[in-house]
Design a protein around this nucleic acid. Structure first.
Lengths: 114, 114
DNA sequence: CGTGGCGCGCAACCAAACGTTGCAGGAGGT
DNA sequence: ACCTCCTGCAACGTTTGGTTGCGCGCCACG
């Protein structure tokens, strides 16, 4: 059991949420509900086009979905997919914690012997 | 309390662990203990130089520390800093989960009324 | 019913980051 | 002394986050 990988994790999802601006976009969408690229860009230190590109990335990995409405495009987070992402974050975090605890126990055991 | 930021999180730490290769390096170091850039690169699909650069990044944010020993340089993970990183992952994951649950409750309430 | 404004997408461009190859130098083993 | 092996530095190519500039379509208002 010990040897291998935390990386059952899908790298596409990770690099989607690894980007700070994209994480902030997700936060904004969670806070205020569906929104457009333009309105989101007003709440961030980047241009509308940068936001649009990030939303395209998030859309490709399924974390958000777009709904055209007149001349606007409303983006909303996809609950199921973000839940998956959150689960992966917790999984990696917990795995690291567990390993660190094991290492610590071993270190303390060695100290005792010494 | 609700409105703002998950981003007390330091972005440097996040982008350090957001990189897939760096995450794998941390996993390898956790699995097998201290190791050199060369030995790590043999277990990854990238060159020694790429690994060396990633280790330099991890070193700058304090996630690993280097110990020169003769002609080799041994890298080990820094427990305290990785613990911080793991805590941040869990924190973001949990925050998302919480918000998703709230949204779901609201959605169900609306369904009932309808 | 036209015309101005607003939101959007596309293209060109710049800078930083990830990865590569090539090369020079220093510590070890025989 | 020599050869080996690990390391660091430099040049280069490609992808990615960001910008500016432009043209199009949709809506609202006079």
């Amino acid at each position: 059991m010990s040897a291998s990988l935390v990386e059952d994790v899908d790298d596409e999802l990770w690099s989607a949420i690894g980007e700070p601006t994209r994480r902030r976009l997700l936060d904004l969408l969670l806070d205020s509900g569906p929104a457009t690229a333009t309105s989101l860009s007003e709440q961030l230190p980047v241009t509308r086009q940068a936001v649009a590109k990030h939303l395209a990335v998030l859309d490709r990995v399924g974390l958000v979905t777009a709904t055209p409405s007149g001349r606007e495009r409303h983006y909303r987070v996809d609950r199921a997919q973000l839940e998956r992402a959150a689960a992966q974050l917790n999984s990696v975090g917990n795995t690291w914690d567990a390993r660190l605890r094991r290492i610590k126990r071993i270190a303390e055991a060695i100290d005792k012997v010494k």
